[in-house]
Nucleic acid binder design. Structure first.
Length: 269
DNA sequence: ATGACAACCTGTGGGC
DNA sequence: TGCCCACAGGTTGTCA
């Protein structure tokens, strides 16, 4: 489900309702996620006041007066704000009381996680992350320099979190299309100039998607349960066999690194 | 160090 | 309708 724009949309959606609000109760219904939710989670967060909510890569950091929570949405996770008394749904793992509202963490596939940010696991996860794509710390030179010894396909390269965070399967295909680079091209066979272009299209695609409220595939919803609208703007993702929006050549799909990838064989070299 | 790939799960959609 | 299979937005860990 979520790539960086969806996580950002979620953070923006829930932050105004969390910050400066106390957690009246914290209930764990299913601790089983990628790693178990810590057993003392409920006890330590109950009564805490939320201080700040922020995103780092695809992680959501919920800072409170007691501890900081590190959450990830995996492939199918979501946070929803609902009215108290709303019936629980299957796969609602966590319920947090916010007075007039309730925050619920829902994750059918359980690839997500909720951990203490300062735990050993949490620190390991955060410390291995590359630069944020929407900051000046990320540019074409970062991509070019990091690629010198990498023979992997450029699509896999830009999806590597140590290189740059937040470029998932959809936006990898989209940004490579806009940069005119074939996703199978070896990472170390791309010029600095082309990487500069690619870093720009990555920023462009992520920014535009955030502005549109994220991409809706199947069931993505933001904190208010609303879908995103970026899907209407997708150039290649999921469009195999359909005409390229630029040159009308049929879009091709190919599995690269185990993930389906989409490109225009005419526009991308 | 690099890279390929299995693994973790459930839900959904397509084909028959 | 119903069944079975393929596949899905992510990331880690293992092995060659």
């Amino acid at each position: 489900m979520p790539e960086l724009p969806e996580v950002e949309t979620t953070v923006r959606g829930i932050a105004p309702y969390l910050v400066n609000t106390c957690f009246d109760f914290v209930r764990i219904h299913h601790a089983g996620l990628r790693w178990p939710i810590p057993s003392e989670f409920s006890a330590l967060l109950t009564g805490a006041r939320c201080v700040q909510v922020e995103r780092r890569a695809k992680y959501i950091l919920i800072h409170t007066t007691e501890r900081t929570v590190l959450a990830h949405l995996g492939m199918s996770g979501s946070f929803r704000l609902v009215a108290p008394g709303t019936p629980l749904k299957t796969h609602d793992h966590v319920q947090i009381g916010l007075g007039e509202l309730e925050l619920r963490y829902h994750d059918p596939r359980r690839f997500g996680c909720m951990l203490w940010a300062d735990s050993e696991r949490g620190q390991t996860l955060l410390s291995s992350l590359g630069p944020e794509p929407l900051t000046d710390a990320f540019d074409g030179l970062v991509l070019y320099r990091g690629a010198r010894s990498k023979r992997i396909a450029v699509k896999n390269y830009i999806m590597t979190n140590q290189v740059v965070v937040g470029v998932g399967n959809i936006y990898a295909s989209e940004s490579l299309f806009l940069a005119g680079i074939r996703p199978t091209r070896a990472a170390n066979r791309i010029s600095l100039a082309r990487y500069q272009r690619l870093s720009e299209t990555i920023k462009q695609v992520l920014r535009q998607s955030i502005e549109s409220g994220g991409t809706t595939l199947r069931d993505f919803v933001n904190g208010q349960g609303e879908p995103g609208y970026f899907q209407q703007t997708l150039q290649v993702y999921g469009r195999q066999g359909q005409a390229c929006r630029v040159c009308e050549t049929p879009i091709q799909s190919q599995v690269i690194g185990g993930r389906n990838s989409y490109y225009c064989p005419q526009c991308q070299r």
